[in-house]
Amino acid sequence: MSETGYNFAYLDEQTKRMIRRAILKAVAIPGYQVPFAGREMPLPYGWGTGGIQVTAAVIGADDTLKVIDQGADDTTNAVSIRRFFQKTAGVDTTTETAAASLIQTRHRIPEEPLTEAQILVYQVPIPEPLRWMEARESETRKMHALTEYGVMHVRLYEDIAHLGRIVKSYDYPVRVNGRYIMAPSPIPKFDNPKMDHMPALQLFGAGREKRIYAVPPYTSVVSLDFEDHPFEVQTWSDGCALCGATDSYLDEVVIDDKGGRMMVCSDTDYCEKRRAAGHLGPMSAPYAETEAAR
């Protein structure tokens, strides 16, 4: 069902080979940003062109693809990217985390633990974690090469000095395999611990900045912190209003113009699974009723 005129998964085989070489190098040097000759994609830069190129380079005809944006399968950009691969590669797609062999994500890691049989592909806008403190590529590459990372802690120090806590809440820098400092892409810091020793292969693609990096399975990923100000993740006082989950990342939905809010799981697949299994939140009708109403 692949659309005529384009190769399987859009990219030509030579380009795929070039990207695979970059991926192999990235896996061999965990957390190191490998420059690659990113191609112009038929989607705009900043909208997942890096993730799409990585996915296109590793996807095979028998893969099952899941695409999420903000944790949800049905956000417009996730839909658009999923359709792109349906069209150009004709692969099966799914919204179920466990059923996917390949997951492309923007801004979240699924709540359900991933397995060795899966690959997680992140879309990355700014791959350089040192960019906050040093704008120049020629300098940041040197800092990585020489492990000159003192300046990262300067930034965290400043947060504590001025605000009493580390305020970085997403794209929270990590140290991979005890060597490279890496930007985890703008996932909430809530997701950082999931990266550590994850059984799945994690690949990161930055299309506009033309960098690929990786965290191989079972690799240590440590969030930067101070001994007396340890890394901590977001918490909420109540669970998900729909499924009652207290262990998931919650989104805030505004429900009226009088300050009314409800908190719901950002991972829509996770929330749905829980409801199907009979878990209820304070604002949820029983699952069978909502399904019947469809």
Binding site: W47, D69, Q70, G71, T75, N77, R106, H107, R108, S169, Y170, D171, P186, I187, P188, K189, F190, Q234, W236, Y249, L250, D251, E252, S266
Partner: peptide, 12 residues
């Protein structure tokens, strides 16, 4: 594009 996951982090 939606950024509400990150925005939620900032809200917290």
């Amino acid at each position: 594009l939606p950024h509400y996951v990150d925005f939620q982090g900032e809200l917290v």
